[in-house]
Write a protein that binds this DNA or RNA. Structure first.
Lengths: 199, 199, 199, 199
DNA sequence: TTATAAGCGAGACGGTACGTCGAGTCTTCTT
DNA sequence: AAGAAGACTCGACGTACCGTCTCGCTTATAA
C-alpha cells in the first residue's frame, strides 16, 4: 500500500509542478483542461486528484509552503544572528518563488491553511520577536506587521524576477537591504555594496 | 452633447463605484450579473458601458489611479523634502486603498496602461531619483526597484487594513518607517519618532 | 387634419414599401433597425407607426391584401363565368405576388385578420360557391378546401417565379390549368388550350 | 463505437422528435431553452448535438425527408399506375406531415440539402415524367412545375389538417382529386365521391 | 496463472457565466 | 407640441469552462 501511495503522491506532485509551471508561464488564466493536458494526464484524473480548482491551488500553495518550510527548518534560524537569518530567509523565499508567485497573485486564498501559519508565519514571527528581544530589531514595529511587510517586499521582488527585470540574487539583496536598513542614506550601509546591481 | 456625455460619465462612474464596492465586499468572485444588479442597471447596459469584464476592471484601475494621481499632484512632492514626500505619498496610497486593493489582488492586469505609468510610477520614480541625487536616499538601490518594493509594502499594509488588523495611520507609519530606515535597531531611531508611532 | 393624416399615411406606406422590398430582397431576416434605416426613418418613428414587428408585417399583409382586393373588385368576378373569373384571380394573385411571397413564407400569421377574410377569402369562397351552384365546379369539394388548395398552388407558383424558374404568365397558366382540370390527360384537353399554355 | 454512436443517434432523434412536437404544438416561436427542457435535456447538451438553431431545424428537415423517402421507397411507385402512385404519395406526405408542417412554414431553408432533392424531388419528378410518357398525364405541364404545385397543394392541406379543419384522409383525397382532375365538374369524376367529406 | 480490483482515458452531461444581439419602452431634446 | 435621437430592460442565442458521472481498458496485486 505504501507503494500505491507513493505513486499517488508522485503523480500528484507532477500535476502540481506542471500546473505551477503553466500558471507561472501564462497569465493566471489556465483552464483545468490545459492544466490536465500540460500534466500529461486526463481531465478525469486531474479531478480525481484534486476535486476542484481551488483544491489544486491549495495543493500548490501547500507544496510551496512545505518546500519553503523545509528551507526554513534547514536554515537553522535560531542558530544565526537575526539579520543573517532574515537574509537567508529572504533568499529562500525568492528561490522558491516560481511557485510562490502564482499564489501571491491572489489565486489561492491561503486562508484556512493551518500549514502556512504553523510552518512559515510562526517561525518568521518568532524570528522577529527574537530580533526585538535581542535589540537587533527596533521595538516600535509589531512582529505581525513586520511579517506582512517582508512578505510584501518579497512578492514585489518576485514580480520583478518573473518579469526578467532582476536576477534572483539582486532581488533578494535589495529586499534585505531595504527591510533591514531602509532606503535612507546613512552611516550603516556596508551591505548595499553587495546588493545594487539592478539593470 | 456635453450633457449627454456628462450623464454617460456619471453613469459609468456609478457603475465603477458600485462594482468596486461589490468587489471589495465580496471575495473576488462577482459575476457581471451581480455587478449590474448592484449598480441598479441591467446587464445589457453594463455591457454597453464596458464591453467586457476586463474593461470594467481596467476602468476601475484607471479610476483608482486617477484618484491617486490627483492626490500625488496635490501633494506637491517636488516642494517637500524627499522623506516627507514619501510619507505623504504612502498615506495617500493607503487612503485610496479600498479601490486599490481590488486591483492589487491581481484582478486587473495593469498592463497596457499608459496612465498608470505616466501618472503614478513616473512621479514616484522621479521622487526617488531626486532623493538619490540629494543624498537623502542611498545610491545603491535603483529607483525602479525602490518603486516596486514600496508598492509591495503598501499592498501588504493595505491587506492588513482590509482585514481590520491595523488602522490606516498605523499601516502608513509602519510602511514609511521600514521603507526609509528599515527594521534594524540603530542610531537613527530618533527619526522614526516622526513617522512610526504605531498605536 | 386630413393633411396630417395624409402625410401619416404616406409615411406609413413608404415604410411598408421599403420594408417589403428589404424583406423580399434579403432572406426573411430583417431587423427592425434595418427596416428603419432602409425607410430613411429613425427606429423610434418606425415604432411610432407600427408598435411592433408583427404590426408591421400585418400592415404589409393588409397592403398586399388591399391591393389584391382592388384587383378583385376591378375584376368583376361576379360578371364573369366562374372559370374565367378564377383565371383572372390567379393572375392577379401572382402579379401582386412580390409582396405576397414574403407573407406566404409564414412571417405574418394572417390570423386575426378580418381584412384578409372580408376582402379576399370571402369573395373567393363566394366564387367557388357560385361555381358549384352553377355546375361549373364539381360539388364534391368544399369551398373552404378549394380556397386553401388554390392558395397553396399560388404560393408554390410564386416561389418558382421568385426563383426565376418561371415567368409570371406561365406560372398563372399552370396554376389555373391544374386547379381547374388537373394534371391528368383526358377528354377536356381542348379547354386547357385557353388557359394552360406553359412555354 | 457502434454503441456510443447508437446512443448518440437515439438521443439526437429524441431531441429532434421532441423539438418537432414542441414546434408543431406551439406557434413557431420556441426558444432553444424550451426545446431543451421539452427534450428532457440541458441546453448545453442540446447545443452539443446541434450547434445552433438552424442545425436543429435542418436535422428536423432531414429526418422528415428521410422518413418520407422511406415511405416513397416502400411505396413501389414504379410498379403502380401513375395516378395510384400519386395518390399513395400524397397520403404518405400528409401522414408524415406533422414534421413537414414545421418546415413548410419556412423555418428551415431546405436549401443546401442534397438529400431532399435526391430522395424526394427526383423520384416524384420521375413519376411525373413517366406519367407524361405513358399518356396518363397531359404533356403541357413541365414535371418541375407539377412537382412544385403538388407540394403546394400538400402544404395547404397540411395546414388545414394542423388546424383541425380536416382529417388527414379527406385532405389527401382532396389534394389527389384536384391535382389529377381539377375542380371543374366533368365526366370523369367517380373519385370525388370518395373524397368529399369536408366538414 | 488467472481473477479481481484499482487507476486511467475518453467523453457525455448539467449548470453557470460570458458576451452579442434584437425587440420593445421610455425619456429627452429639437424644431 | 409632435417627432427624432437614442438609452434602457428583457430575454434569447451561442460559447466556454467547471465539476460530476459512466463506461471500457489496462495494469498490478492477490489467490
Amino acid at each position: 500500500m505504501s507503494k500505491g501511495d507513493a505513486l499517488r503522491d508522485r503523480t500528484a506532485a507532477a500535476i502540481v509542478d506542471s500546473a505551477a509551471a503553466s500558471l507561472a508561464e501564462r497569465g493566471r488564466i489556465v483552464s483545468m483542461n490545459e492544466v490536465a493536458r500540460a500534466a500529461g494526464v486526463s481531465r478525469a484524473t486531474l479531478y480525481r486528484y484534486f476535486p476542484n480548482r481551488e483544491a489544486l491551488l491549495r495543493a500548490m500553495a501547500t507544496t510551496g509552503v512545505e518546500e519553503l518550510a523545509a528551507r526554513v527548518a534547514d536554515a537553522d534560524l535560531q542558530g544565526l544572528p537575526v539579520d543573517q537569518a532574515i537574509a537567508r530567509l529572504v533568499r529562500g523565499f525568492i528561490a522558491v518563488g516560481s511557485k510562490y508567485v502564482a499564489l501571491s497573485a491572489g489565486q489561492a486564498s491561503t486562508d484556512d491553511h493551518p500549514d502556512v501559519d504553523a510552518l512559515l508565519t510562526e517561525p518568521v514571527r518568532d524570528l522577529f520577536r527574537r530580533g526585538i528581544a535581542d535589540g537587533v530589531l527596533r521595538p516600535g514595529l509589531a512582529p505581525e506587521l513586520l511579517t506582512e511587510l517582508l512578505s510584501g517586499l518579497v512578492k514585489a521582488a518576485l514580480g520583478m524576477v518573473a518579469d526578467g527585470q532582476l536576477g534572483a540574487e539582486e532581488a533578494a539583496a535589495g529586499v534585505v537591504a531595504v527591510f533591514l536598513d531602509g532606503a535612507r542614506a546613512g552611516t550603516r550601509s556596508p551591505e548595499p555594496a553587495r546588493s545594487s546591481r539592478a539593470r
